[in-house]
Design a protein around this nucleic acid. Structure first.
Length: 826
RNA sequence: GCCGGGGUGGCGGAAUUGGUAGACGCAGCGGACUCAAAAUCCGCCGGGCCCUGCGCCCUUGGGGGUUCGAGUCCCCCCCUCGGUACCA
């Protein structure tokens, strides 16, 4: 082996094999001793694509942190698995004409090997693969638990239908009216679907955010997504329809006297009922158009308001006023009650609508200070104020008025205080093949019946020829599979042919990892007690309102039914940043994707891994440059040459004798141990690497390139032993080899993290910065233990300072101990 | 529009509670080694000014402010990257 350059090709493969052969990363989940930390990074989503640079960024960094914890005596569980059901695999399978199962398994084998090259401490004994029956059996079990507890329900309703993907999508998968995967428009369609009633958990999911250390931005997004809104639901009567009423939700009951019309969403069932014969044709046409329109068209804010009059009138319960009932698509069928009371003077949307259709605008809230006239209004006045023209309530402040009006409505039995959420129930049925079958049977006599637990899993049939989407589940075509007997009555029945949203698969994998070896139970309570909650969960911020809500919801559900010891899955969450190319997000369409392979081939895995960590802050991401990697390559080789100049065959010692080293080297060493440790604690890998480079620079200044025989070789070797240990979380293969060359016994990651000596951190002398009126004027060497008075005297004695002070006098002196003196003169 | 993150040399990026701006690295320049090149090692490296030296001035997107002192705190504005979008 060459001693000049780190021979990564030999070294890395050799150590990976040793780790494998000796099961070096094996974790005993049943070991109770010591401190336990569950470090989890979101598992990978295999499709046609291989691991890209972003995976290295993410997985390399998290593993480096985990290795540091391990060297500090913490028992670390760091598993990896595959979220392998879903559209990417299926789409790819269709494209190449191969079965999704084959494609997926091949892809998993390939990616697992790539993951091993990163050198992470994954214990593959705990791997989970969501598309395998031994995993999805428990997905089905979960579904049935949800069903038994009334959380999984079948509902009829409008769903997001993607004509491109030929399937239903959850609200969380629709962005701006487009499906998040292809960016094509989504339409509303009436279908019977399975839903998980996450809305029942809205309040709990909101409150749970208080107990966890998650990125503030994500906490905020989840709060917004849940969208708790306090207000009043108010019942309007309908003129001439004694048996019918319209319920509206408002956060501004104080504006009730300003209602000039009531609006129904086009989806509302009331529309048909309340439309008078003469208006029928027009209303029907409007509703048809509105429902056909994509969400994008409907919600475009630049679009003018549209709507039609139904011909009927509603009765305002507070003053018996008769107001027209309109249909308008700016009212959403899916939020609140699907009907609103329109107060044009105090709501911008109603204001625009009223202007367009010449409906009355009644001012019922006045600003506290300035005056306001309807004629002058160019926009709605939406601030709180003083109630006005509001009968007995006139003169009340908005917030007082809200309460008073609500109370009054309660006595009239026409309203009550209500909390509404923006969060929708989670629709989980998918009309696709490559997913977990819904373990339910439909019997004409008995209704919906769960497949008995001892018959789980309902295996996804392989023998399917056409798994292309066609609007109904491909499973429906398999008559033998679909037709079954009812577990309750024994009569003929049919299986549910939809598969589950893949977010169900990933909503409990963190708990399943801990029982991956068990087929007799979904989870292992003892291990969960020991390891949960996840101490650090790492993944992209894009999952903020999807996966990260679902995993919290399902964990909480499992907690409530006694399966999970904790209600919140992850005590701490961190989002890795993204790595860009020339400041732009990498994407195939831009053609700027950087492929890791050539760099790994040229520099080895460790250098590549370290370079990514050096490129920027883990949480903020960084910009990839092909050139910069040479810096890390040089650094690694500088260390490599030092190690090979001071080999040994006994374990390097921790006991360093201060006298063996130049003061600056000894001090830098201890500072490096300290700051690298702190940086690893906070995932500040880039600065940690800088600190190690500084140490190596000091060593070269001291030792040069050649051994001159004047240094104590053993002393150097011991020092290098420390460097290699603190470097090992970053460059695991490299450091195993270096550690053994220094005489250490494998494995280096099983060594203890070196400790530093507080007293060795500070220099005997400091450089005192002298400022005059805040400007830097001089630097003076001063004893580190000098008192504030001494420092001030030294500063005043400076020639430069004296020159500047001529003719002036000292007003004030600010002394920052050990650092700086600022003399204020004038 | 609203909500977050970010704007620091030619480039990637550092800067504890406000206390030497530009750590570390890339690129560049100069030197050593070499027949030569690569590799390696050492030195320089924000801009400007009279280069007369250890000198002075300017500089963290722009403009104000607080402070002995501001990249950091406050106010206003600009750019950029994410998220979100008629939620009554």
């Amino acid at each position: 082996m060459s001693e000049d350059r780190y021979p990564f090709n030999d070294v890395e493969a050799v150590w990976r094999k040793k780790w494998d052969d000796e099961k070096a990363f094996s974790v005993d989940l049943d070991d109770d001793s010591g401190e336990h930390k569950y470090v989890l990074v979101m598992f990978s989503y295999p499709s046609a694509s291989k691991l890209h640079i972003g995976h290295w960024w993410n997985y390399g960094g998290v593993d480096t942190h985990a290795r540091y914890l391990r060297m500090n005596g913490v028992k670390v569980f760091e598993p990896m698995g595959f979220d392998s059901f879903g559209l990417p695999a299926e789409t790819y399978a269709i494209k190449v004409g191969t079965h999704p199962k084959t494609v997926t398994e091949e892809s998993i084998s390939f990616i697992r090997e790539q993951l091993k090259r990163i050198g992470a401490m994954y214990d593959w004994d705990w791997e989970v693969v969501t598309s395998r029956p031994n995993y999805y059996r428990w997905t089905q079990w979960l579904f049935q638990q949800l069903f038994k507890h009334g959380i999984a329900v079948q509902k009829d309703g409008l769903v997001n239908w993607s004509p491109t993907l030929q399937t239903v999508l959850a609200n969380e998968q629709v962005i701006n009216g487009m499906d998040e995967r292809t960016g094509n428009p989504v339409v509303q369609k009436k279908m019977t679907q399975w839903y998980f009633r996450i809305t029942k958990y809205a309040e709990k999911l909101l409150n749970g955010l208080e107990d966890i250390d998650w990125p503030e931005s994500t906490v905020k997004r989840q709060k917004d997504w849940i969208g708790r809104s306090e207000g009043t639901s108010i019942t309007f009567g309908v003129d001439g329809h004694d048996d019918t009423s319209i319920e509206v939700f408002t956060t501004r009951p104080d504006t009730l006297f300003g209602v000039s019309y009531v609006t129904l969403a086009p989806e509302s069932d009331l529309v048909k009922q309340l439309t008078t014969d003469d208006r029928k044709a027009e209303v029907e046409e409007y509703v048809q158009t509105a429902l056909r329109a994509t969400e994008v068209d409907r919600t475009s804010t630049t679009r003018e308001k549209t709507g039609v009059f139904t011909g009927s009138y509603a009765i305002n319960p507070i003053n018996e006023e008769r107001v027209p009932i309109w249909v308008a698509d700016y009212v959403l069928g899916s939020y609140g009650t699907g009907s609103v009371m329109a107060v044009p003077a105090h709501d911008q949307r109603d204001f625009e609508f009223a202007l367009k259709f010449k409906l009355p605008i009644k001012l019922v809230i006045r600003p506290v200070k300035e005056s306001l006239d309807v004629e002058d209004m160019t926009e709605a006045y939406t601030e709180p104020g003083i109630m006005h023209n509001s009968g007995q309530f006139s003169g009340l402040q908005s917030d007082v008025g809200k309460k008073a009006v609500t109370e009054k409505l309660e006595t009239l039995d026409a309203g009550k205080h209500t909390v509404t959420y923006r969060l929708r129930d989670w629709s989980v049925s998918r009309q696709r093949y490559w997913g977990c079958p819904i373990p339910m049977i439909h019997c004409e006599k008995c209704g919906v019946v769960p497949v008995p637990e001892d018959q789980l899993p309902v295996v996804l049939p392989d023998e399917i020829h056409d798994f292309r989407p066609k609007g109904t589940s491909p499973l429906g075509a398999l008559e033998d599979w679909v037709n079954t007997t009812c577990p309750t009555c024994g009569g003929a029945a049919k299986r549910d042919t939809d598969t589950m949203d893949t977010f169900v698969d990933s909503s409990f994998y963190h708990l399943r990892y801990l029982a991956a070896d068990r087929d007799d139970a979904p989870f292992d309570k003892e291990r969960m007690n020991r390891w949960m909650p996840i101490s650090l969960y790492v993944g992209g911020p894009e999952h903020g309102t999807g996966h990260l809500i679902y995993i919290r919801f399902i964990t909480r559900f499992l907690h409530e039914i006694g399966w999970s010891p904790v209600a919140e899955p992850a005590a701490k969450m961190v989002h890795q940043g993204i790595i860009t190319k020339d400041g732009m997000r990498m994407s195939k369409s831009k053609g700027n994707v950087v492929n890791p392979e050539p760099f790994i081939e040229k520099y080895g895995s460790d250098v590549f891994r370290m370079y990514l960590m050096f490129t920027g802050d883990f949480r903020l991401g960084g910009d990839w440059s092909d050139d910069g990697i040479t810096g890390i390559d040089r650094f690694a080789n500088r260390v490599w040459r030092l190690v090979n100049r001071f080999p040994g065959d006994t374990e390097p010692s921790d006991k360093l004798n201060k006298g063996d080293y130049p003061e600056v080297v000894f001090r830098t060493l201890h500072n490096t141990i300290k700051s690298v440790g702190e940086d690893l604690e906070n995932l500040s890998f880039n600065t940690a690497i800088s600190r190690m480079m500084e140490l190596v620079n000091e060593l070269y200044k001291w030792l040069g390139e050649e051994n001159d025989g004047k240094v104590n070789a053993d002393a150097v070797r011991n020092l290098l032993g420390i460097l290699i240990r603190i470097m090992s979380p970053f460059a695991p293969h490299f450091c195993e080899e270096a550690w053994t060359r220094l005489g250490g016994t494998p494995f280096v990651f099983q060594q203890e993290w070196p400790s530093y000596d507080e007293s060795a951190l500070v220099a005997n002398t400091i450089t005192l910065v002298v400022q005059v009126n805040g400007k830097l004027r001089d630097r003076i060497d001063a004893p580190a233990d000098a008192s504030n008075d001494d420092l001030e005297r030294l500063a005043l004695a400076s020639e430069k300072v004296q020159g500047l002070m001529e003719g002036k006098s000292l007003r004030k002196a600010i002394v920052v101990p050990g650092k700086l003196v600022n003399l204020v003169v004038g």
